[in-house]
Design a protein around this nucleic acid. Structure first.
Lengths: 160, 160
DNA sequence: GTTATTGCAAATTATTTGCATATAA
DNA sequence: TTATATGCAAATAATTTGCAATAAC
């Protein structure tokens, strides 16, 4: 299992594949995908895409606004929220609503994964289990359903 | 796999154990547990415990208030919220925050289970998979964590 | 009798929306 | 040029809280 620690906020790990990609290309890829989807590229959207591509944690709307604002003060929180919905719609970001807390976002450039949340610190660790993925699909099928998406979160405390 | 359908709002199933218990005793059990925990039993709390014990779906605070109110109009929404926190704290109910929607509650009298949410209708189906439970614990352990609680939700659409 | 709980209304938090103006295509 | 996006401020939705009145133990 590969493990990557980034600041004291977020840890990214890829349990099975363990591959890490070049983030510098993420922004371009996202913009391409957005044009593809017919999304009008405004200055504000470009900034937000930038901020999201650069983020290696799971920031919420407020934090994204803070970061975007420091690059270009001409960007409002309302636009951040509206843009996040557009980007989510276009499939370039994922929205996670962890317990009670405001929604947090991340780009979809890495393969699907689930999250372990450190309940003491709020840190987020990403992981992926093929077995669990498979079992989920089996269960849904048994119940006569197709999974559209799912959410697996482990709220945990460091051992020892 | 056992399956129990209740109104067009919620379906309860127990994948592995499939046991169904006598709900008429749930209220007494809850009140006992609460006294045990040193929780002062007010008229409002008794009503809410009643409503929760009778519920076989996953009502939100508003709906619980509606039901409680119809038994005893002298109960406010604020008290419902406050009581729900007390009951959760005491471990007699679980709080679930499904995507975006307000939190929904259920008694903890049945064994732990996860949820499949029908994204068309909002229906909730309960299921349990020992294998997934085990895998989760293994993953957390591998990352050096102990799971305090977790959340697995399958957002799905009926087949065909 | 003392301390915790209630109801009410006001506050808070996260997010959304209406509308006049600005901007991408 | 024409539809779409933006900023601002006000609206909404879910939940929480302060405080004086009330009820549990």
């Amino acid at each position: 299992m590969q493990l990557r620690t980034i600041c004291n906020k977020t840890i990214c790990t890829c349990v099975s594949s363990g591959y890490i990609l070049d983030m510098s290309e993420t922004k371009t890829t996202m913009e391409d995908a957005l044009r593809e989807a017919g999304v009008r590229m405004t200055r504000q959207r470009r900034v937000l895409v930038q901020v999201l591509a650069d983020a290696n944690d799971h920031p919420d709307a407020n934090e994204l606004h803070r970061r975007a604002h420091s690059i270009d003060p001409k960007i409002s929180l309302a636009t951040v929220y509206r843009t996040l919905s557009v980007l989510e719609e276009a499939g370039v970001i994922d929205r996670h609503a962890f317990e009670g807390k405001p929604a947090r976002f991340e780009t979809t450039d890495r393969p699907h994964h689930d999250h372990l949340i450190d309940i003491e610190t709020g840190d987020v660790i990403e992981f992926r289990s093929e077995k669990i993925e498979r079992l989920q699909a089996e269960i849904a099928a048994e119940l006569g359903y197709d999974i559209i998406h799912h959410r697996l979160e482990l709220y945990a405390r460091k051992q020892g």
